[in-house]
Amino acid sequence: MIPKVDKELLLTSGTSSGVWTLYTDGASNTKGSGLWIILKPPTGDIIKQSIGSVHLTNNEAEYEAMIAGLELAKSLGAEIIEAKCDSLLVVNQLDGTFEVKDDRMRRYVEKLQVVLRRFKEWTLDHVPGDQNNEADALANLGSSIESEEFNSGTVAYIEVDIGSSTIEAEKS
């Protein structure tokens, strides 16, 4: 989670005007699932989060990462967002290029559409995985926590701050 002081600084420094850029990735393995978020406000700051979660499929983790990143951006006052995702499925299901056959995926598409409508302007672009090395590293960090450590619905937030060597972890 973003410390309250940093959040207030972002909100009062006029960062809501201008384009915010969001990069996301999701990963799933035998230990659990991880979500990766990098948010770049117009000020040039960088907010990075790696979130560990109970087991999700890879596609669910991709959607969860995008939704979490968009909600973070909106909570910080973003009005214009350029979202970038390495999942062709997410990008193409949202724009209608791929048919949504599974009910669970349909609910993710609908939720993503609701979240995106909260922005004045938005774009969602595909970024190939080989150009997303940092995304993979953070998503894997989030999925490296043993799932037995979680109760159902529990999420661990691991925040990595640029320019510091400290990593904060919070289990809820």
Rank of each mutant, 00 (worst) to 15 (best):
S17V: 12
V19Q: 11
W20V: 07
W20E: 10
L22S: 07
L22P: 06
Y23M: 01
Y23W: 12
Y23C: 02
T24C: 11
T24V: 04
G26M: 02
A27R: 00
A27F: 01
A27G: 03
S28I: 00
T30V: 09
G32N: 02
G34I: 09
G34S: 13
L35R: 08
W36Y: 12
I37T: 14
L39M: 02
L39K: 09
P41S: 11
P41L: 05
P42W: 05
T43K: 11
G44D: 06
D45P: 01
D45W: 04
D45S: 09
I46G: 05
I47D: 09
K48S: 11
Q49L: 07
S50W: 00
S50C: 04
S50I: 00
I51M: 13
V54M: 02
L56M: 05
N58M: 07
N58P: 06
N58F: 01
N58V: 11
N59K: 03
E60A: 08
E60Q: 15
A61I: 05
A61S: 13
E62T: 10
E62Y: 03
Y63M: 05
Y63Q: 09
E64R: 09
A65S: 06
A65R: 00
M66V: 12
I67E: 12
I67C: 10
G69I: 00
G69M: 09
G69W: 13
L70Y: 05
E71T: 14
E71S: 13
E71A: 05
E71V: 04
L72G: 01
K74S: 07
L76W: 09
A78S: 03
A78L: 08
E79D: 07
E79Y: 02
I80N: 14
I80M: 09
I81H: 08
E82H: 13
C85H: 06
S87E: 13
L88A: 08
L89P: 08
V90D: 09
Q93H: 02
L94W: 11
D95F: 04
G96K: 06
F98V: 00
F98Q: 04
E99P: 06
V100H: 00
D102S: 06
D102P: 14
D102Y: 11
D103K: 14
D103A: 13
M105H: 07
M105L: 13
M105T: 03
Y108C: 10
Y108V: 10
V109P: 01
V109Y: 04
V109L: 02
E110D: 13
E110K: 15
K111Y: 08
Q113F: 07
Q113A: 10
V114R: 10
V114G: 04
L116K: 03
R118P: 06
R118E: 12
R118N: 14
W122A: 02
P128A: 02
G129P: 03
D130S: 13
Q131K: 15
N132T: 02
N132E: 04
N133W: 01
E134W: 08
E134F: 11
A135L: 04
A135V: 04
A135E: 11
D136T: 08
A137E: 10
A137S: 10
A137C: 07
L138A: 05
A139R: 12
A139H: 15
L141M: 15
G142L: 05
